[in-house]
Amino acid sequence: MTKKVRLLPYADFLGVRIDGIADVDGGAPLLAMPFSEGLIGGPGRLHGGAIAGLLEIAAIAAIDATLEDEGQNARAIFKPITATVDFMRPGLLVDSYARAEVIRVGNRIANVAVEAWQDDPERPIAAARINIAISAPAANEG
């Protein structure tokens, strides 16, 4: 059974949605960010912050997909600790995609590698390594 992955409210703001779940790679979701005006940075380019946002959402979704589903009210809390983003190619004013690879998920920390691309998955526009803290729902906040 595939776990139901939920995206952050911020994902709605960017227009990011789940475009599919891979059968391989531990079921990391494929995320799509259709082009929209609110993503534009410089002339003819997506804003780097919007691309970084897509990468972080993909990283969290991939970790979420690896965790046991504990019911509606027991969603783990994910807090990015560090993110290192490399921008390899300009983000054009077209749809973007991202998928993360969970390198390691422990009880407290997950290490994730994630890439974003547009027309060709072999030609990423950006990549990131993101380390994320995982805390239990409700308690342990802070």
Binding site: Y10, H47, G48, G49, A52, G53, L54, E56, V85
Partner: peptide, 12 residues
């Protein structure tokens, strides 16, 4: 707040 908007602020 998600971290993405803070990245957008700082990148800008």
């Amino acid at each position: 707040l998600a971290s993405g908007p803070i990245v957008s602020l700082m990148d800008t």
